[in-house]
Amino acid sequence: MLTATFAFALTAAGVAVAGLRAYRRRFLSATRWFAVALLPAGLYLTGLFPVARTIGDEIADWAVKLVFDPRVWTGIVLLAVSAGLLVTTRWMGRRGAVTEGRKATAPATPATPAAGPAPARPAVAPSTGAPSTGAPSARTTPKRAGKGKGDGLDEFADIEEILRRRGI
């Protein structure tokens, strides 16, 4: 009987707050308050208050053991180590430092690039000391027979050369 009184008193208080919010024309907030206000009555009518009490008792027992039982502290340390290892491996995996699937004894050959992102470097080296003006230099543009300057393939030749140098 006391549980029913408590549940319906909480529901009535929540509905009153929702009504005040609606009176002030804050309808979204009023709807949220009304939804939360219905929870105690719903929990009582479905019989879930005893379950909630059991869960509360178990959490209280765990908290007492947390303070006085060294096994619980050992478990917490193990959970922290596990979480630290997972975060560290995720971070190193994103940096490309950890390479999975490659044998440690086989050295990386130029034909098989290493796993991970490519190092940040310019695609085409600028000429010695002079800033790049966007025009390709004579060193970086390969000369091909049969292709003239007016056919629009000069840019593709540069790209092909870069890809070939990187082994792609």
Score class of each variant (00 low, 15 high):
Gly42His: 06
Gly19Met: 03
Asp151Glu: 12
Arg26Val: 03
Ser29Trp: 03
Pro119Glu: 11
Thr141Trp: 04
Ala13Glu: 07
Leu10Asn: 02
Ala7Val: 01
Ile168Gly: 06
Val72Thr: 12
Arg32Asn: 07
Asp61Ser: 09
Leu78Ala: 15
Ala18Gln: 00
Ala111Phe: 04
Glu58Lys: 14
Val51Cys: 04
Ala80Gly: 12
Ala83Glu: 06
Gly42Pro: 00
Leu20His: 09
Trp73Leu: 14
Gly56Leu: 12
Ala115Glu: 13
Leu66Glu: 14
Glu160Asn: 09
Ile55Thr: 12
Trp73Met: 14
Arg94Ile: 01
Leu66Gln: 14
Ala145Cys: 08
Arg24Pro: 01
Ala83Leu: 12
Phe68His: 10
Thr105Tyr: 14
Thr89Lys: 08
Leu85Glu: 04
Ala18Ile: 01
Pro110Cys: 06
Thr89Met: 10
Ile159Glu: 09
Ala52Ile: 12
Arg166Asp: 11
Pro110Met: 13
Pro40Glu: 02
Pro70Leu: 06
Val17Gly: 03
Thr128Asn: 12
Ala13Cys: 10
Ala145Trp: 07
Leu39Asn: 01
Asp151Ser: 11
Tyr44Leu: 04
Ser132Ile: 08
Ala83His: 04
Gly84Cys: 04
Gly129Met: 03
Pro40Gly: 02
Ala118Met: 10
Leu39Met: 15
Thr109Met: 07
Arg26Ser: 13
Arg139Ser: 10
Ala16His: 11
Thr109His: 05
Gly42Ser: 13
Gly84Lys: 00
Val72Lys: 02
Ala7Asp: 01
Arg94Met: 04
Trp62Ile: 09
Met92Ala: 13
Val77Trp: 05
Ala123Gly: 03
Leu2Tyr: 09
Ala135Asn: 10
Ala114Cys: 05
Ala60Ile: 05
Ala111Ile: 08
Val77Ala: 12
Leu66Thr: 14
Ala123Pro: 02
Leu45Arg: 04
Arg71Cys: 00
Arg24Gly: 07
Glu100Ala: 15
Asp69Leu: 06
Ala18Val: 02
Leu20Cys: 09
Ala60Lys: 10
Ala123Lys: 09
Glu160Thr: 07
Pro50Asn: 06
Arg24Lys: 09
Lys143Ser: 11
Val81Ser: 01
Arg102Gln: 13
Ala7Thr: 00
Ala123Gln: 07
Tyr44Thr: 01
Val81Glu: 00
Ile59Trp: 11
Ala114Glu: 07
Trp33Cys: 04
Thr11Val: 01
Thr109Tyr: 02
Ala138Trp: 00
Thr5Met: 14
Asp57Lys: 12
Ala118Phe: 08
Asp57Met: 12
Lys149Trp: 06
Val124Gln: 03
Ala118Cys: 03
Glu161Asp: 11
Arg53His: 08
Gly42Asn: 08
Ala13Asn: 06
Trp33Phe: 11
Ala97Lys: 13
Thr74Lys: 11
Ala157Pro: 00
Ser82Asp: 03
Thr141Asp: 03
Ala135Gly: 05
Ser127Val: 13
Met1Arg: 14
Arg25Ala: 08
Ala35His: 06
Lys103Ser: 13
Ala104His: 10
Arg139Val: 05
Ala18Thr: 02
Val15Pro: 00
Thr133Val: 09
Gly152Pro: 03
Ile162Asn: 06
Met92Phe: 09
Val51Met: 07
Ala138Phe: 03
Met92Leu: 14
Pro40Tyr: 00
Thr112Leu: 13
Thr11Gln: 05
Gly19Asn: 05
Trp33Met: 07
Ala97Gly: 06
Phe34Lys: 02
